[in-house]
Design a protein around this nucleic acid. Structure first.
Lengths: 230, 230
DNA sequence: TCAATACGGTAACCGTGGTTACCAAAAGTG
DNA sequence: CACTTTTGGTAACCACGGTTACCGTATTGA
């Protein structure tokens, strides 16, 4: 039934521990809707009616948030198997809290929220697993938001950059690494203006703290960088 | 067994839909730990070993987050029945993501995280309810963080104040209301400095947009305020 | 292959808000 | 009741970063 998206399905944490057979039964019950989108097309619009938990089957989407002043903040870049709108599925006010844009042509599956939590008899085991998975995922999402808060509460631009670089360094476990965001995306992520980001990065380069060309970055003075976080 | 905290227990959303009888059985299985704290005493310290889901039985605690630069941000003020650390229970790295301080003398119950999710036979029904409740709560928490993000992404101080006042107004459903935070707490909440907050509030007062004395606030020009959000 | 668009570095200007310091009123505390 | 501590308003100073504008280089697409 959903064979062509095996990739997206198998990568999705929501279905972790559920066999392909059981999954088919689950889908018969949940009746997901599947849509396709072109690059830059709007998948969801913040404030509009909630259409259910979104799961990217193929392609890539950007999850963004706009405040009243019109500042856009990137919350996530999601690929196959990754979800969005999971927070609103069980505790929302029925509207999308985020806007989602197709970063590349993509296929997205929407699961009706109410059906995940309801208890039908024949799917008991899978349902239980589904709910437990959901719990783990939503907790994880909350922690991501929490981490995002850490960035936004840093006041100095240099502090934000330093924190970001140190996290990337910790993840790569190497002083040379490539970041996945373009400059203006990074600026959005850190909630600063693009020219200001560029200016400060070049200053740090001129001071010998780091080097970069394009998205490839090399930390030159790790200790100096750590002190800039504060 | 836990009669003396009936107030805290009955107010807690985690136990919604579970009778007092069942609750006793649940507690026999979960084996919660209960501690008491004096005013200003530290309940948890961010970064230290996670001790389990915290539920306030009596008194009041302040949940705070400190970033590397030492800026403190108040995430919540929790009273009886309210919880903290719910995000880390199921998807944390085993350490407290927040610091919690007793705002008044208080009693706190800690539920071991692993035991909530495990499936013992005799508590099946209550367990299922507990997990479902947990899902709803954690989703709600994620949305709160999401809302918090909205404040922090507002760049102008006036925009932050206006947004805050409008939310208070909406909650009180009246142009006159009392806020629960002192000036320096509000400054922390909005992530600005106290003198700057004071300065801007007085400017808004002088412009005739609002009035205030102490924590009592009166909005004079609602429409003007709404325009200041942007 | 060429035109259009996206991307990113640079510079000048200046407004917002952080910092510091001081003071007066209010609230605890012996 | 006097004393200390907390709270919050006020003012001067100035640095950080937003804004705008421009330009060279990559990418993209017809």
């Amino acid at each position: 039934m959903f064979k062509k998206w095996t990739n997206g399905l198998s990568k999705c944490e929501l279905f972790k521990g559920i066999t392909e057979e059981e999954l088919n039964l689950v889908f018969c019950c949940l009746k997901p809707k599947v849509n396709t989108y072109e690059r830059n097309e709007l998948v969801t619009i913040a404030g509009e009616k909630y259409t259910g938990l979104g799961i990217v089957m193929s392609g890539q989407v950007v999850v963004t948030k706009e405040n009243a002043a019109g500042n856009r903040v990137i919350l996530a870049v999601n690929g196959p198997g990754e979800m969005f709108g999971e927070m609103s599925a069980f505790s929302g006010d029925g509207v999308w809290p985020v806007s989602v844009v197709a970063r590349a042509a993509c296929t997205v599956m929407f699961l009706p929220a109410g059906k995940i939590i309801c208890n039908c008899e024949r799917l008991c085991a899978s349902h239980r697993q589904l709910i437990t998975n959901m719990l783990e995922i939503v907790s994880g999402q909350a922690l991501v938001l929490h981490r995002k808060l850490e960035y936004l509460t840093i006041k100095s631009l240099r502090g934000k950059i330093s924190t970001f670089l140190l996290e990337q360094y910790k993840e790569a476990n190497c002083t040379t690494f490539t970041i996945s965001m373009k400059r203006n995306e990074l600026a959005d992520f850190l909630n600063v203006s693009r020219p200001a980001l560029s200016r400060e990065m070049c200053r740090m380069r001129d001071e010998g703290v780091m080097q970069f060309q394009g998205n490839s970055i090399k930390i030159k003075e790790l200790e100096a960088l750590k002190e800039m976080v504060e």
